[in-house]
Nucleic acid binder design. Structure first.
Lengths: 114, 114
DNA sequence: GTGCCCGGTATCAAAACCATACCGTGATCA
DNA sequence: TGATCACGGTATGGTTTTGATACCGGGCAC
Protein backbone atom coordinates (compact mmCIF):
# COMPACT_ATOMS: atom_id res chain seq x y z
CA UNK A 1 0.00 0.00 0.00
CA UNK A 2 1.25 3.39 -1.14
CA UNK A 3 4.92 2.60 -1.45
CA UNK A 4 6.66 5.19 -3.58
CA UNK A 5 10.27 5.02 -4.71
CA UNK A 6 10.39 8.78 -5.20
CA UNK A 7 10.22 9.28 -1.45
CA UNK A 8 13.69 9.17 0.10
CA UNK A 9 12.58 7.28 3.18
CA UNK A 10 10.20 4.80 1.56
CA UNK A 11 11.30 1.19 2.07
CA UNK A 12 10.79 0.56 -1.63
CA UNK A 13 13.93 2.64 -2.11
CA UNK A 14 15.92 -0.04 -0.37
CA UNK A 15 14.31 -2.72 -2.49
CA UNK A 16 15.04 -0.83 -5.69
CA UNK A 17 18.61 -0.30 -4.56
CA UNK A 18 19.05 -4.02 -4.07
CA UNK A 19 17.55 -5.21 -7.34
CA UNK A 20 19.39 -2.40 -9.07
CA UNK A 21 22.78 -3.77 -7.98
CA UNK A 22 24.97 -4.19 -11.00
CA UNK A 23 24.86 -7.97 -11.33
CA UNK A 24 21.37 -8.88 -10.15
CA UNK A 25 19.98 -8.56 -13.66
CA UNK A 26 22.57 -11.04 -14.92
CA UNK A 27 21.98 -13.61 -12.22
CA UNK A 28 18.21 -13.54 -12.57
CA UNK A 29 18.39 -13.87 -16.33
CA UNK A 30 20.91 -16.68 -16.09
CA UNK A 31 18.88 -18.64 -13.53
CA UNK A 32 15.82 -18.25 -15.75
CA UNK A 33 17.10 -21.35 -17.53
CA UNK A 34 16.95 -23.40 -14.37
CA UNK A 35 19.08 -24.10 -11.30
CA UNK A 36 22.81 -23.67 -11.71
CA UNK A 37 26.00 -24.27 -9.84
CA UNK A 38 28.42 -21.55 -8.88
CA UNK A 39 30.79 -22.47 -11.68
CA UNK A 40 27.94 -22.59 -14.19
CA UNK A 41 26.98 -19.05 -13.29
CA UNK A 42 30.56 -17.96 -13.53
CA UNK A 43 30.82 -19.40 -17.00
CA UNK A 44 27.47 -18.13 -18.16
CA UNK A 45 27.98 -14.59 -16.88
CA UNK A 46 31.26 -13.83 -18.55
CA UNK A 47 33.52 -11.35 -16.86
CA UNK A 48 32.07 -11.56 -13.37
CA UNK A 49 34.65 -12.08 -10.66
CA UNK A 50 34.07 -14.79 -8.07
CA UNK A 51 34.07 -12.26 -5.26
CA UNK A 52 31.33 -10.13 -6.77
CA UNK A 53 29.33 -13.20 -7.79
CA UNK A 54 29.49 -14.48 -4.22
CA UNK A 55 28.38 -11.14 -2.82
CA UNK A 56 25.53 -10.86 -5.29
CA UNK A 57 24.31 -14.39 -4.56
CA UNK A 58 24.51 -13.92 -0.79
CA UNK A 59 22.56 -10.68 -0.98
CA UNK A 60 19.90 -12.16 -3.24
CA UNK A 61 19.59 -15.16 -0.96
CA UNK A 62 19.09 -12.87 2.04
CA UNK A 63 16.38 -11.05 0.09
CA UNK A 64 14.60 -14.30 -0.65
CA UNK A 65 15.20 -14.11 -4.41
CA UNK A 66 17.04 -17.40 -4.65
CA UNK A 67 17.95 -20.47 -2.66
CA UNK A 68 21.40 -21.89 -2.08
CA UNK A 69 21.75 -25.62 -1.65
CA UNK A 70 25.12 -27.07 -0.70
CA UNK A 71 25.63 -30.83 -1.09
CA UNK A 72 28.11 -32.55 1.19
CA UNK A 73 30.10 -34.02 -1.65
CA UNK A 74 33.58 -33.74 -2.88
CA UNK A 75 34.43 -31.85 -4.92
CA UNK A 76 31.78 -29.55 -3.47
CA UNK A 77 28.52 -28.92 -5.24
CA UNK A 78 26.33 -25.90 -4.62
CA UNK A 79 23.15 -25.16 -6.51
CA UNK A 80 21.38 -21.85 -6.86
CA UNK A 81 17.75 -21.59 -7.88
CA UNK A 82 15.26 -18.77 -8.18
CA UNK A 83 12.47 -18.68 -5.62
CA UNK A 84 8.95 -17.77 -6.62
CA UNK A 85 9.78 -14.20 -5.65
CA UNK A 86 12.91 -14.26 -7.78
CA UNK A 87 10.92 -15.67 -10.66
CA UNK A 88 8.47 -12.81 -10.38
CA UNK A 89 11.38 -10.45 -10.87
CA UNK A 90 12.36 -12.17 -14.07
CA UNK A 91 9.65 -10.39 -16.07
CA UNK A 92 10.95 -6.88 -15.43
CA UNK A 93 14.63 -7.80 -15.56
CA UNK A 94 14.27 -9.77 -18.75
CA UNK A 95 12.61 -6.74 -20.29
CA UNK A 96 15.57 -4.61 -19.24
CA UNK A 97 18.00 -7.12 -20.66
CA UNK A 98 16.10 -7.35 -23.92
CA UNK A 99 15.91 -3.58 -24.20
CA UNK A 100 19.67 -3.36 -23.83
CA UNK A 101 20.22 -6.00 -26.48
CA UNK A 102 17.70 -4.40 -28.82
CA UNK A 103 18.91 -0.79 -28.70
CA UNK A 104 22.66 -1.05 -29.04
CA UNK A 105 22.87 0.73 -32.39
CA UNK A 106 20.81 3.73 -31.26
CA UNK A 107 22.82 4.22 -28.09
CA UNK A 108 26.16 3.85 -29.82
CA UNK A 109 25.08 6.25 -32.55
CA UNK A 110 23.96 8.84 -30.00
CA UNK A 111 27.25 8.53 -28.12
CA UNK A 112 29.20 8.99 -31.35
CA UNK A 113 27.34 12.16 -32.15
CA UNK A 114 28.15 13.76 -28.80
CA UNK B 1 22.49 -8.63 -34.56
CA UNK B 2 22.69 -11.31 -31.93
CA UNK B 3 23.70 -9.05 -29.09
CA UNK B 4 24.09 -10.92 -25.83
CA UNK B 5 24.68 -9.30 -22.46
CA UNK B 6 26.20 -12.48 -21.08
CA UNK B 7 29.22 -11.99 -23.31
CA UNK B 8 31.82 -9.80 -21.63
CA UNK B 9 32.77 -7.97 -24.81
CA UNK B 10 29.31 -7.51 -26.31
CA UNK B 11 28.40 -3.84 -26.75
CA UNK B 12 25.05 -4.53 -25.10
CA UNK B 13 27.04 -4.82 -21.87
CA UNK B 14 27.89 -1.15 -22.13
CA UNK B 15 24.26 -0.30 -22.78
CA UNK B 16 23.09 -2.33 -19.81
CA UNK B 17 25.74 -0.71 -17.66
CA UNK B 18 24.44 2.72 -18.60
CA UNK B 19 20.74 2.09 -18.09
CA UNK B 20 21.58 0.22 -14.92
CA UNK B 21 23.18 3.30 -13.38
CA UNK B 22 21.70 3.96 -9.98
CA UNK B 23 19.47 6.91 -10.84
CA UNK B 24 18.41 6.26 -14.43
CA UNK B 25 15.31 4.41 -13.33
CA UNK B 26 14.23 7.40 -11.24
CA UNK B 27 14.78 9.96 -13.97
CA UNK B 28 12.94 7.96 -16.62
CA UNK B 29 9.99 7.33 -14.32
CA UNK B 30 9.89 10.99 -13.28
CA UNK B 31 10.00 12.27 -16.85
CA UNK B 32 7.20 9.90 -17.77
CA UNK B 33 4.87 12.62 -16.54
CA UNK B 34 6.21 15.08 -19.07
CA UNK B 35 9.12 17.52 -19.44
CA UNK B 36 10.61 18.87 -16.25
CA UNK B 37 13.08 21.44 -15.09
CA UNK B 38 16.18 20.59 -13.13
CA UNK B 39 14.63 21.78 -9.89
CA UNK B 40 11.43 19.84 -10.60
CA UNK B 41 13.43 16.64 -10.94
CA UNK B 42 15.32 17.43 -7.80
CA UNK B 43 12.09 17.86 -5.91
CA UNK B 44 10.39 14.86 -7.44
CA UNK B 45 13.30 12.49 -6.89
CA UNK B 46 13.79 13.02 -3.22
CA UNK B 47 17.27 12.51 -1.86
CA UNK B 48 19.20 12.88 -5.09
CA UNK B 49 22.09 15.30 -4.87
CA UNK B 50 22.50 17.95 -7.58
CA UNK B 51 25.87 16.54 -8.54
CA UNK B 52 24.57 13.05 -9.20
CA UNK B 53 21.46 14.39 -10.92
CA UNK B 54 23.62 16.45 -13.25
CA UNK B 55 25.85 13.48 -14.05
CA UNK B 56 22.88 11.22 -14.69
CA UNK B 57 21.20 13.75 -16.96
CA UNK B 58 24.39 14.43 -18.93
CA UNK B 59 24.98 10.74 -19.47
CA UNK B 60 21.41 10.09 -20.53
CA UNK B 61 21.57 13.03 -22.89
CA UNK B 62 24.74 11.66 -24.47
CA UNK B 63 22.99 8.31 -24.90
CA UNK B 64 20.07 9.95 -26.65
CA UNK B 65 17.58 9.10 -23.91
CA UNK B 66 16.56 12.68 -23.22
CA UNK B 67 16.97 16.21 -24.50
CA UNK B 68 18.18 19.22 -22.60
CA UNK B 69 16.82 22.63 -23.55
CA UNK B 70 18.25 25.73 -21.92
CA UNK B 71 16.32 28.98 -22.26
CA UNK B 72 18.23 32.25 -22.19
CA UNK B 73 16.19 33.71 -19.37
CA UNK B 74 16.88 34.85 -15.93
CA UNK B 75 16.66 33.17 -13.58
CA UNK B 76 17.77 30.34 -15.85
CA UNK B 77 15.35 27.73 -17.11
CA UNK B 78 16.38 24.30 -18.37
CA UNK B 79 13.95 21.64 -19.47
CA UNK B 80 14.55 17.93 -19.75
CA UNK B 81 12.36 15.66 -21.84
CA UNK B 82 12.46 12.02 -22.84
CA UNK B 83 13.26 11.25 -26.45
CA UNK B 84 11.45 8.52 -28.31
CA UNK B 85 14.30 6.20 -27.32
CA UNK B 86 13.97 7.22 -23.69
CA UNK B 87 10.27 6.67 -23.86
CA UNK B 88 10.83 3.14 -25.14
CA UNK B 89 12.86 2.49 -22.00
CA UNK B 90 9.99 3.56 -19.82
CA UNK B 91 8.19 0.23 -20.23
CA UNK B 92 10.97 -1.89 -18.69
CA UNK B 93 11.97 0.66 -16.07
CA UNK B 94 8.42 1.29 -14.97
CA UNK B 95 8.05 -2.45 -14.51
CA UNK B 96 11.14 -2.50 -12.31
CA UNK B 97 9.85 0.41 -10.30
CA UNK B 98 6.47 -1.19 -9.86
CA UNK B 99 8.02 -4.49 -8.87
CA UNK B 100 10.02 -2.72 -6.15
CA UNK B 101 6.93 -0.97 -4.85
CA UNK B 102 4.88 -4.14 -4.96
CA UNK B 103 7.26 -6.51 -3.16
CA UNK B 104 8.48 -4.53 -0.19
CA UNK B 105 6.89 -6.79 2.45
CA UNK B 106 8.35 -10.00 1.01
CA UNK B 107 11.86 -8.59 0.77
CA UNK B 108 11.78 -7.10 4.24
CA UNK B 109 10.43 -10.33 5.68
CA UNK B 110 13.16 -12.36 3.99
CA UNK B 111 15.83 -10.00 5.32
CA UNK B 112 14.45 -10.27 8.81
CA UNK B 113 14.61 -14.04 8.71
CA UNK B 114 18.27 -14.07 7.74
C1' DG C 1 24.15 47.57 -3.86
C1' DT C 2 22.01 43.72 -1.41
C1' DG C 3 19.72 39.77 -1.63
C1' DC C 4 17.23 36.17 -4.22
C1' DC C 5 16.37 32.45 -7.86
C1' DC C 6 18.09 28.89 -10.65
C1' DG C 7 21.11 25.49 -12.38
C1' DG C 8 24.53 23.94 -11.52
C1' DT C 9 30.41 22.99 -9.56
C1' DA C 10 34.05 21.92 -6.11
C1' DT C 11 35.85 19.24 -2.67
C1' DC C 12 36.41 15.53 -0.01
C1' DA C 13 34.74 10.98 2.07
C1' DA C 14 32.49 6.48 1.72
C1' DA C 15 30.77 2.67 -0.70
C1' DA C 16 30.70 -0.39 -4.62
C1' DC C 17 33.22 -2.76 -7.82
C1' DC C 18 37.20 -5.12 -10.10
C1' DA C 19 41.81 -7.88 -10.93
C1' DT C 20 44.64 -11.09 -9.28
C1' DA C 21 46.21 -14.43 -6.31
C1' DC C 22 45.43 -17.82 -3.11
C1' DC C 23 43.05 -21.62 0.09
C1' DG C 24 40.74 -26.11 2.16
C1' DT C 25 38.67 -30.34 1.34
C1' DG C 26 38.52 -34.84 -0.16
C1' DA C 27 38.82 -37.89 -4.37
C1' DT C 28 41.86 -39.63 -7.77
C1' DC C 29 45.86 -41.30 -9.72
C1' DA C 30 50.85 -42.49 -10.29
C1' DT D 1 51.78 -42.41 -0.13
C1' DG D 2 52.33 -38.42 -1.91
C1' DA D 3 51.25 -35.24 -5.75
C1' DT D 4 47.35 -33.37 -8.38
C1' DC D 5 42.79 -31.86 -9.38
C1' DA D 6 37.91 -29.92 -9.08
C1' DC D 7 35.03 -26.93 -6.79
C1' DG D 8 33.46 -23.07 -4.25
C1' DG D 9 34.87 -19.89 -2.63
C1' DT D 10 38.43 -15.78 0.42
C1' DA D 11 42.16 -12.26 0.79
C1' DT D 12 44.26 -8.22 -0.63
C1' DG D 13 44.72 -3.98 -2.70
C1' DG D 14 43.42 -0.66 -6.19
C1' DT D 15 39.99 2.01 -9.19
C1' DT D 16 35.44 3.69 -10.13
C1' DT D 17 30.85 5.29 -8.49
C1' DT D 18 28.25 7.38 -5.41
C1' DG D 19 27.30 10.55 -1.64
C1' DA D 20 27.37 14.84 1.71
C1' DT D 21 28.18 19.47 2.11
C1' DA D 22 29.42 23.78 0.67
C1' DC D 23 29.79 27.12 -2.67
C1' DC D 24 29.27 29.96 -7.32
C1' DG D 25 27.73 33.27 -11.33
C1' DG D 26 24.53 36.09 -13.52
C1' DG D 27 20.82 38.84 -13.91
C1' DC D 28 16.70 41.02 -11.73
C1' DA D 29 13.87 43.19 -8.13
C1' DC D 30 14.00 46.09 -4.44
Amino acid sequence: MAYNVMSATCPSRVVLHRIGARWTVFVVNALAEGPMRFSDLRTRIQGITPKVLTETLRSMEADGLLTRTAYAENPPRVEYDLTELGLSLLGPLRAVREWAEAHVPEILAARDRS
